[in-house]
Write a protein that binds this DNA or RNA. Structure first.
Lengths: 166, 166
DNA sequence: TAGATTTATTAATCTAGGTGAACGTCATTT
DNA sequence: AAATGACGTTCACCTAGATTAATAAATCTA
Protein backbone atom coordinates (compact mmCIF):
# COMPACT_ATOMS: atom_id res chain seq x y z
CA UNK A 1 0.00 0.00 0.00
CA UNK A 2 2.02 2.99 1.15
CA UNK A 3 5.73 3.61 1.44
CA UNK A 4 6.50 5.61 4.54
CA UNK A 5 9.54 7.05 6.27
CA UNK A 6 9.68 6.77 10.03
CA UNK A 7 12.21 8.25 12.41
CA UNK A 8 14.12 6.61 15.21
CA UNK A 9 11.87 6.06 18.22
CA UNK A 10 8.65 6.58 16.30
CA UNK A 11 5.78 4.27 17.17
CA UNK A 12 4.37 2.54 14.09
CA UNK A 13 1.74 0.37 15.75
CA UNK A 14 -0.02 0.46 19.10
CA UNK A 15 -1.87 -2.48 20.61
CA UNK A 16 -5.58 -2.64 19.88
CA UNK A 17 -5.65 -0.80 16.57
CA UNK A 18 -8.72 -1.62 14.51
CA UNK A 19 -6.75 -2.62 11.41
CA UNK A 20 -4.11 -5.28 10.75
CA UNK A 21 -0.78 -3.88 9.65
CA UNK A 22 1.71 -5.81 7.57
CA UNK A 23 5.00 -3.98 7.55
CA UNK A 24 7.80 -4.71 5.13
CA UNK A 25 11.11 -3.12 6.03
CA UNK A 26 12.91 -1.61 3.04
CA UNK A 27 15.72 0.05 4.99
CA UNK A 28 16.34 0.52 8.69
CA UNK A 29 15.39 -1.53 11.72
CA UNK A 30 12.18 -1.96 13.75
CA UNK A 31 11.17 -3.94 16.82
CA UNK A 32 7.91 -5.64 17.71
CA UNK A 33 7.18 -6.13 21.41
CA UNK A 34 4.61 -6.57 24.15
CA UNK A 35 4.38 -4.70 27.43
CA UNK A 36 3.36 -6.88 30.35
CA UNK A 37 1.19 -5.92 33.32
CA UNK A 38 4.25 -4.70 35.21
CA UNK A 39 5.10 -2.33 32.35
CA UNK A 40 8.02 -4.46 31.28
CA UNK A 41 8.87 -4.67 27.58
CA UNK A 42 9.43 -8.08 25.93
CA UNK A 43 10.80 -8.00 22.41
CA UNK A 44 9.11 -10.58 20.20
CA UNK A 45 11.22 -9.93 17.11
CA UNK A 46 13.52 -7.51 15.36
CA UNK A 47 13.04 -6.62 11.72
CA UNK A 48 16.00 -5.34 9.72
CA UNK A 49 15.98 -4.76 5.95
CA UNK A 50 14.03 -7.37 4.03
CA UNK A 51 12.00 -8.62 6.99
CA UNK A 52 8.25 -8.41 7.33
CA UNK A 53 6.33 -7.81 10.54
CA UNK A 54 2.78 -8.95 11.20
CA UNK A 55 0.74 -10.44 14.00
CA UNK A 56 -0.34 -13.84 12.73
CA UNK A 57 -2.34 -14.63 15.83
CA UNK A 58 -4.38 -11.47 15.39
CA UNK A 59 -4.91 -12.18 11.71
CA UNK A 60 -5.74 -15.86 12.19
CA UNK A 61 -8.18 -15.11 14.97
CA UNK A 62 -9.64 -11.87 13.52
CA UNK A 63 -8.79 -9.78 16.51
CA UNK A 64 -6.69 -6.72 17.28
CA UNK A 65 -2.98 -7.08 17.86
CA UNK A 66 -1.39 -6.98 21.30
CA UNK A 67 1.96 -5.77 19.94
CA UNK A 68 3.71 -2.45 19.79
CA UNK A 69 5.94 -1.83 16.79
CA UNK A 70 8.44 0.97 16.66
CA UNK A 71 11.52 2.14 14.85
CA UNK A 72 14.97 1.55 16.31
CA UNK A 73 16.53 3.45 13.39
CA UNK A 74 15.21 5.88 10.81
CA UNK A 75 13.58 3.47 8.40
CA UNK A 76 11.74 3.24 5.13
CA UNK A 77 8.84 0.81 5.36
CA UNK A 78 5.90 -0.37 3.30
CA UNK A 79 2.66 -0.67 5.24
CA UNK A 80 -0.22 -2.82 4.02
CA UNK A 81 -3.48 -2.43 5.92
CA UNK A 82 -6.22 -5.04 6.20
CA UNK A 83 -9.61 -5.07 7.88
CA UNK A 84 -9.79 -6.82 11.19
CA UNK A 85 -11.96 -9.60 9.83
CA UNK A 86 -10.02 -10.09 6.61
CA UNK A 87 -8.84 -13.69 6.67
CA UNK A 88 -6.04 -15.84 5.55
CA UNK A 89 -5.55 -17.21 2.95
CA UNK A 90 -4.81 -15.64 -0.38
CA UNK A 91 -5.67 -11.99 0.17
CA UNK A 92 -3.09 -11.41 2.80
CA UNK A 93 -0.02 -10.88 0.72
CA UNK A 94 0.50 -10.32 -2.99
CA UNK A 95 0.28 -13.95 -3.97
CA UNK A 96 0.29 -17.38 -2.44
CA UNK A 97 3.89 -18.15 -3.35
CA UNK A 98 5.10 -15.06 -1.58
CA UNK A 99 2.83 -15.78 1.36
CA UNK A 100 4.03 -19.35 1.80
CA UNK A 101 7.62 -18.26 1.48
CA UNK A 102 7.22 -15.58 4.13
CA UNK A 103 5.35 -17.90 6.46
CA UNK A 104 7.95 -20.62 6.07
CA UNK A 105 10.71 -18.27 7.10
CA UNK A 106 8.68 -16.95 9.98
CA UNK A 107 8.03 -20.46 11.26
CA UNK A 108 11.69 -21.33 10.97
CA UNK A 109 12.68 -18.32 13.07
CA UNK A 110 10.02 -19.04 15.67
CA UNK A 111 10.91 -22.71 15.83
CA UNK A 112 14.54 -21.87 16.52
CA UNK A 113 13.42 -19.37 19.10
CA UNK A 114 11.30 -21.88 20.99
CA UNK A 115 14.07 -24.45 20.97
CA UNK A 116 16.40 -21.74 22.28
CA UNK A 117 14.07 -20.58 25.04
CA UNK A 118 13.50 -24.18 26.14
CA UNK A 119 16.40 -24.85 28.41
CA UNK A 120 19.23 -22.92 26.77
CA UNK A 121 21.37 -20.98 29.24
CA UNK A 122 21.67 -17.22 28.95
CA UNK A 123 25.02 -17.61 27.19
CA UNK A 124 23.69 -20.04 24.60
CA UNK A 125 20.67 -17.83 23.96
CA UNK A 126 23.00 -15.00 23.18
CA UNK A 127 24.98 -17.16 20.77
CA UNK A 128 21.76 -18.19 19.04
CA UNK A 129 20.77 -14.53 18.72
CA UNK A 130 24.08 -13.81 16.99
CA UNK A 131 23.28 -16.55 14.47
CA UNK A 132 19.73 -15.36 13.82
CA UNK A 133 20.61 -11.69 13.44
CA UNK A 134 24.29 -11.57 12.49
CA UNK A 135 24.08 -8.02 11.21
CA UNK A 136 22.35 -6.12 13.97
CA UNK A 137 24.36 -6.70 17.18
CA UNK A 138 25.95 -3.28 16.89
CA UNK A 139 22.79 -1.51 15.82
CA UNK A 140 20.65 -2.51 18.80
CA UNK A 141 21.12 -1.27 22.38
CA UNK A 142 22.10 -4.05 24.72
CA UNK A 143 18.98 -3.75 26.82
CA UNK A 144 16.88 -4.62 23.79
CA UNK A 145 18.95 -7.70 23.07
CA UNK A 146 18.49 -8.70 26.71
CA UNK A 147 14.74 -8.22 26.36
CA UNK A 148 14.72 -10.40 23.25
CA UNK A 149 16.64 -13.13 25.07
CA UNK A 150 14.36 -13.01 28.09
CA UNK A 151 17.11 -11.95 30.49
CA UNK A 152 18.04 -8.69 32.21
CA UNK A 153 20.53 -6.18 30.79
CA UNK A 154 22.74 -6.86 33.82
CA UNK A 155 22.85 -10.58 33.08
CA UNK A 156 23.76 -9.89 29.45
CA UNK A 157 26.45 -7.46 30.52
CA UNK A 158 27.98 -10.13 32.74
CA UNK A 159 27.92 -12.69 29.94
CA UNK A 160 29.62 -10.40 27.48
CA UNK A 161 32.26 -9.58 30.08
CA UNK A 162 32.95 -13.27 30.57
CA UNK A 163 33.10 -14.00 26.85
CA UNK A 164 35.78 -11.41 26.20
CA UNK A 165 37.96 -12.65 29.04
CA UNK A 166 38.28 -16.05 27.39
CA UNK B 1 0.59 -41.03 1.42
CA UNK B 2 0.11 -43.93 3.81
CA UNK B 3 -2.21 -44.43 6.73
CA UNK B 4 -0.42 -46.19 9.56
CA UNK B 5 -1.22 -47.43 13.04
CA UNK B 6 1.39 -46.88 15.70
CA UNK B 7 1.41 -48.14 19.26
CA UNK B 8 2.08 -46.24 22.45
CA UNK B 9 5.77 -45.58 22.86
CA UNK B 10 6.63 -46.30 19.25
CA UNK B 11 9.16 -43.99 17.62
CA UNK B 12 7.86 -42.52 14.37
CA UNK B 13 10.80 -40.32 13.47
CA UNK B 14 14.43 -40.22 14.52
CA UNK B 15 16.72 -37.21 14.01
CA UNK B 16 18.73 -37.21 10.82
CA UNK B 17 16.47 -39.28 8.62
CA UNK B 18 17.06 -38.68 4.93
CA UNK B 19 13.43 -37.85 4.17
CA UNK B 20 11.05 -35.18 5.42
CA UNK B 21 8.00 -36.56 7.16
CA UNK B 22 4.71 -34.71 7.42
CA UNK B 23 2.48 -36.45 9.89
CA UNK B 24 -1.23 -35.82 10.20
CA UNK B 25 -2.81 -37.26 13.33
CA UNK B 26 -6.16 -38.92 12.67
CA UNK B 27 -6.63 -40.36 16.16
CA UNK B 28 -4.36 -40.56 19.16
CA UNK B 29 -1.59 -38.33 20.43
CA UNK B 30 2.06 -37.84 19.49
CA UNK B 31 4.93 -35.68 20.72
CA UNK B 32 7.78 -34.01 18.87
CA UNK B 33 10.93 -33.27 20.86
CA UNK B 34 14.66 -32.73 20.87
CA UNK B 35 17.25 -34.36 23.07
CA UNK B 36 20.01 -32.01 24.20
CA UNK B 37 23.68 -32.82 24.72
CA UNK B 38 22.99 -33.84 28.32
CA UNK B 39 20.41 -36.37 27.12
CA UNK B 40 17.53 -34.25 28.37
CA UNK B 41 14.28 -34.27 26.42
CA UNK B 42 12.58 -30.97 25.48
CA UNK B 43 9.09 -31.26 24.03
CA UNK B 44 8.58 -28.90 21.12
CA UNK B 45 4.92 -29.69 20.57
CA UNK B 46 2.13 -32.17 21.18
CA UNK B 47 -0.14 -33.32 18.38
CA UNK B 48 -3.58 -34.66 19.23
CA UNK B 49 -6.27 -35.52 16.66
CA UNK B 50 -6.39 -33.08 13.76
CA UNK B 51 -2.91 -31.69 14.26
CA UNK B 52 -0.06 -31.95 11.79
CA UNK B 53 3.60 -32.38 12.65
CA UNK B 54 6.50 -31.29 10.47
CA UNK B 55 9.88 -29.67 10.82
CA UNK B 56 9.59 -26.41 8.92
CA UNK B 57 13.18 -25.46 9.59
CA UNK B 58 14.39 -28.70 8.02
CA UNK B 59 12.07 -28.26 5.05
CA UNK B 60 12.87 -24.58 4.53
CA UNK B 61 16.60 -25.20 4.75
CA UNK B 62 16.65 -28.55 2.92
CA UNK B 63 18.28 -30.44 5.70
CA UNK B 64 17.50 -33.36 7.96
CA UNK B 65 15.34 -32.84 11.01
CA UNK B 66 16.73 -32.68 14.54
CA UNK B 67 13.48 -33.88 16.10
CA UNK B 68 12.26 -37.16 17.48
CA UNK B 69 8.58 -37.94 17.07
CA UNK B 70 6.85 -40.66 18.97
CA UNK B 71 3.45 -41.89 20.03
CA UNK B 72 2.10 -41.10 23.48
CA UNK B 73 -1.03 -43.16 22.75
CA UNK B 74 -1.90 -45.80 20.17
CA UNK B 75 -2.58 -43.62 17.17
CA UNK B 76 -3.68 -43.65 13.59
CA UNK B 77 -1.59 -41.30 11.48
CA UNK B 78 -1.10 -40.33 7.87
CA UNK B 79 2.52 -39.98 6.85
CA UNK B 80 3.58 -38.00 3.78
CA UNK B 81 7.20 -38.35 2.77
CA UNK B 82 9.22 -35.80 0.79
CA UNK B 83 12.77 -35.75 -0.50
CA UNK B 84 15.22 -33.78 1.54
CA UNK B 85 15.65 -31.18 -1.17
CA UNK B 86 11.97 -30.86 -2.01
CA UNK B 87 11.06 -27.25 -1.35
CA UNK B 88 8.22 -25.11 -0.22
CA UNK B 89 5.94 -23.92 -1.76
CA UNK B 90 3.13 -25.74 -3.46
CA UNK B 91 4.28 -29.34 -3.44
CA UNK B 92 4.42 -29.67 0.28
CA UNK B 93 0.78 -30.20 1.10
CA UNK B 94 -2.22 -30.97 -1.02
CA UNK B 95 -2.85 -27.40 -2.10
CA UNK B 96 -1.85 -23.89 -1.29
CA UNK B 97 -5.01 -23.06 0.64
CA UNK B 98 -4.47 -25.97 2.97
CA UNK B 99 -0.80 -25.15 3.28
CA UNK B 100 -1.42 -21.52 4.20
CA UNK B 101 -4.10 -22.50 6.66
CA UNK B 102 -1.85 -25.01 8.38
CA UNK B 103 1.08 -22.62 8.47
CA UNK B 104 -1.07 -19.84 9.89
CA UNK B 105 -2.19 -22.03 12.75
CA UNK B 106 1.33 -23.21 13.36
CA UNK B 107 2.62 -19.64 13.54
CA UNK B 108 -0.16 -18.67 15.92
CA UNK B 109 0.75 -21.51 18.28
CA UNK B 110 4.45 -20.71 18.12
CA UNK B 111 3.85 -17.01 18.61
CA UNK B 112 1.86 -17.69 21.77
CA UNK B 113 4.56 -20.04 22.90
CA UNK B 114 7.33 -17.48 22.51
CA UNK B 115 5.32 -14.83 24.32
CA UNK B 116 4.72 -17.37 27.09
CA UNK B 117 8.36 -18.42 27.39
CA UNK B 118 9.44 -14.78 27.50
CA UNK B 119 9.02 -13.83 31.10
CA UNK B 120 5.95 -15.79 32.13
CA UNK B 121 6.29 -17.52 35.50
CA UNK B 122 5.97 -21.30 35.76
CA UNK B 123 2.36 -20.94 36.92
CA UNK B 124 1.35 -18.73 34.02
CA UNK B 125 3.07 -21.05 31.55
CA UNK B 126 0.97 -23.88 32.88
CA UNK B 127 -2.21 -21.84 32.49
CA UNK B 128 -1.24 -21.01 28.91
CA UNK B 129 -0.66 -24.71 28.21
CA UNK B 130 -4.18 -25.47 29.45
CA UNK B 131 -5.54 -22.94 26.95
CA UNK B 132 -3.50 -24.27 24.03
CA UNK B 133 -4.28 -27.94 24.66
CA UNK B 134 -7.52 -28.02 26.68
CA UNK B 135 -8.18 -31.67 25.90
CA UNK B 136 -4.93 -33.40 26.66
CA UNK B 137 -4.02 -32.55 30.29
CA UNK B 138 -5.21 -35.93 31.48
CA UNK B 139 -3.75 -37.87 28.58
CA UNK B 140 -0.16 -36.71 29.02
CA UNK B 141 2.15 -37.67 31.90
CA UNK B 142 3.06 -34.71 34.03
CA UNK B 143 6.75 -34.94 33.27
CA UNK B 144 6.00 -34.35 29.59
CA UNK B 145 3.96 -31.27 30.38
CA UNK B 146 6.86 -30.03 32.48
CA UNK B 147 9.22 -30.65 29.59
CA UNK B 148 6.93 -28.67 27.28
CA UNK B 149 6.83 -25.79 29.75
CA UNK B 150 10.59 -25.77 30.19
CA UNK B 151 10.46 -26.57 33.91
CA UNK B 152 11.15 -29.68 36.00
CA UNK B 153 8.46 -32.20 36.96
CA UNK B 154 9.07 -31.27 40.59
CA UNK B 155 8.34 -27.61 39.92
CA UNK B 156 5.13 -28.51 38.10
CA UNK B 157 4.07 -30.80 40.92
CA UNK B 158 4.50 -27.96 43.39
CA UNK B 159 2.46 -25.59 41.23
CA UNK B 160 -0.40 -28.02 40.90
CA UNK B 161 -0.40 -28.62 44.64
CA UNK B 162 -0.67 -24.88 45.24
CA UNK B 163 -3.45 -24.42 42.70
CA UNK B 164 -5.70 -27.01 44.31
CA UNK B 165 -5.28 -25.52 47.76
CA UNK B 166 -6.79 -22.24 46.62
C1' DT C 1 -1.04 -60.95 41.11
C1' DA C 2 3.85 -60.37 42.35
C1' DG C 3 7.60 -58.10 41.20
C1' DA C 4 9.77 -54.62 38.34
C1' DT C 5 9.72 -50.33 36.29
C1' DT C 6 8.07 -45.80 35.65
C1' DT C 7 5.95 -41.70 37.47
C1' DA C 8 4.54 -38.35 41.11
C1' DT C 9 5.31 -36.16 45.46
C1' DT C 10 7.83 -34.02 49.14
C1' DA C 11 11.65 -31.97 51.29
C1' DA C 12 16.56 -30.17 51.77
C1' DT C 13 19.85 -27.84 49.50
C1' DC C 14 22.01 -25.03 45.72
C1' DT C 15 22.49 -21.69 41.99
C1' DA C 16 21.57 -18.86 37.81
C1' DG C 17 19.74 -15.05 37.14
C1' DG C 18 16.63 -11.24 39.04
C1' DT C 19 16.33 -6.79 41.72
C1' DG C 20 17.83 -2.44 43.17
C1' DA C 21 21.14 0.92 43.70
C1' DA C 22 25.41 3.49 42.72
C1' DC C 23 28.40 5.16 39.31
C1' DG C 24 30.63 6.25 34.81
C1' DT C 25 30.19 7.32 29.94
C1' DC C 26 28.12 9.26 26.07
C1' DA C 27 24.89 12.03 23.49
C1' DT C 28 21.46 15.71 23.32
C1' DT C 29 19.64 20.00 24.76
C1' DT C 30 19.76 24.67 26.38
C1' DA D 1 29.98 23.93 29.05
C1' DA D 2 26.65 22.73 32.16
C1' DA D 3 22.67 20.03 32.69
C1' DT D 4 19.75 16.31 31.53
C1' DG D 5 18.90 11.85 30.39
C1' DA D 6 19.75 7.42 28.19
C1' DC D 7 22.74 3.34 28.44
C1' DG D 8 26.21 -0.01 30.33
C1' DT D 9 28.70 -1.90 34.20
C1' DT D 10 29.40 -3.55 38.82
C1' DC D 11 28.07 -5.07 43.26
C1' DA D 12 25.32 -6.74 47.21
C1' DC D 13 21.63 -8.90 47.96
C1' DC D 14 17.31 -12.18 47.11
C1' DT D 15 14.27 -15.59 45.05
C1' DA D 16 12.24 -18.92 41.60
C1' DG D 17 13.21 -22.87 40.16
C1' DA D 18 17.04 -26.62 39.58
C1' DT D 19 19.16 -30.54 41.69
C1' DT D 20 19.45 -34.47 44.55
C1' DA D 21 17.52 -37.89 47.13
C1' DA D 22 14.12 -40.64 49.43
C1' DT D 23 9.35 -42.41 49.39
C1' DA D 24 4.95 -43.40 47.62
C1' DA D 25 1.85 -44.37 44.03
C1' DA D 26 0.72 -45.93 39.64
C1' DT D 27 1.61 -48.79 35.57
C1' DC D 28 3.64 -52.49 33.09
C1' DT D 29 4.98 -57.22 32.41
C1' DA D 30 5.60 -61.99 32.98
Amino acid sequence: MGIKNVTKGEIVQLPNEQKHKIIRVITGLLKMYIVDDKGKEHIYMFAPEGWTLSDFVAITESKASIFFIDAIENSQIEITTKDLNEKLPSTLYENTTQTIDLMGRRIATLQNRVVMLLGFSALNRYKQFLLTYPDIVNRVPQKMIASYLGITPQALSKIRGQKETK
